[in-house]
């Protein structure tokens, strides 16, 4: 009666290497669940778009243009990349905190999953892949809207999509690790405590130069700053070596998050 002892690498597997066959099962699970919650899925696209128009059009009319390294940039062009990057962060954090907490504590999904051949790493990889896949769709849609609205001056902007995936990876991994420490829904407020200041102060709404020099260092230490500046550089076609620093920062940030998440899920559920 016994069937295959290990997860047979799924035949269809195209976008995933063999090591991702088991995480892919969890992605498939989330995809199925999302079909029953499609309205939520769709609504996720609108939030950054609302912000884009409120900031770009509404605030843009008040600000006029922004001085970036001596160049005058229309405010909408300045703020659109920030909205794209913060939305990548928000989406990833939302998926990896609230949704994961629900599965960890309420639906006990991971407990069931761990009684199958999936391991803690598979769960972390599966959930994060899902968050990234979802984020990818949102990023692409956002970019399209921003481009149609005339806020995107460069074709390099296409690279902003993978850049947002990297931002998402970092925040999803760290967010999921943080979720394993959450005790109740009330703790979601502490997540806000981390997210909101970054959203407001990571050179999102005004250039870094607006801050006094001491504060500039603080801003530059945050992961979202690196995300925003990376996406902004790409969307404005302003390529320079500094962008690689941003990529490096976000890569390390992601690796730390992945390592912590895998460890924590194991200690939390395999007791």
């Amino acid at each position: 009666m016994a069937t295959g002892t290990t997860a047979a690498p799924a035949r269809h597997a195209l976008p995933f290497p063999v090591a991702m066959a088991r995480p892919a099962a969890l992605v498939e699970r989330n995809l199925r669940a999302a079909r029953h919650y499609w309205l939520t899925f769709v609504s996720g696209f609108f939030e950054p778009v609302f912000y884009l128009f409120a900031m770009g059009v509404g605030i843009g009319a008040l600000v006029g243009s922004v001085d970036v390294d001596g160049r005058e940039i229309p405010y909408a062009v300045f703020v659109a990349p920030a909205m794209m990057a913060t939305s990548a962060m928000n989406g990833a954090v939302y998926d990896s905190t609230g949704n994961v907490f629900y599965k960890l504590k309420h639906s006990k999904l991971y407990r069931s999953v761990l009684s199958t051949p999936l391991r803690p790493w598979d769960i972390a990889a599966g959930e994060i892949s899902w968050a990234l896949l979802r984020g990818l769709i949102y990023s692409a849609a956002f970019l399209l809207v921003a481009a149609v609205a005339g806020f995107v001056p460069s074709w390099w902007a296409l690279l902003a999509i993978p850049a947002c995936t990297l931002i998402g990876l970092g925040f999803a991994a760290v967010g999921m690790a943080a979720t394993t420490y959450m005790r109740s829904w009330n703790d979601m407020d502490y997540v806000q405590l981390a997210i909101l200041p970054m959203f407001l102060f990571s050179a999102t709404f005004y250039p870094l130069a607006t801050y006094p020099p001491a504060l500039q260092w603080v801003v530059q230490a945050t992961p979202l700053y690196h995300g925003v500046d990376l996406v902004r550089g790409l969307m404005m076609g302003d390529l320079h070596v500094g962008l690689l620093v941003h990529v490096g920062y976000l890569a390390v940030f992601s690796a730390l998050g992945l390592w912590a998440t895998t460890r924590r899920i194991g200690t939390l559920l395999l007791t």
């Binding site: 939030e47 912000y51 913060t86 928000n90 939302y94 905190t97 609230g98 309420h106 109740s184 829904w185 009330n186 979601m188 407020d189 997540v191 806000q192 997210i195 909101l196 959203f199």
Partner: peptide, 10 residues
């Protein structure tokens, strides 16, 4: 962007 508000299923 207050998405997660004080009480979820608190």
């Amino acid at each position: 962007m207050s998405r997660a508000h004080e009480q979820g299923p608190t």
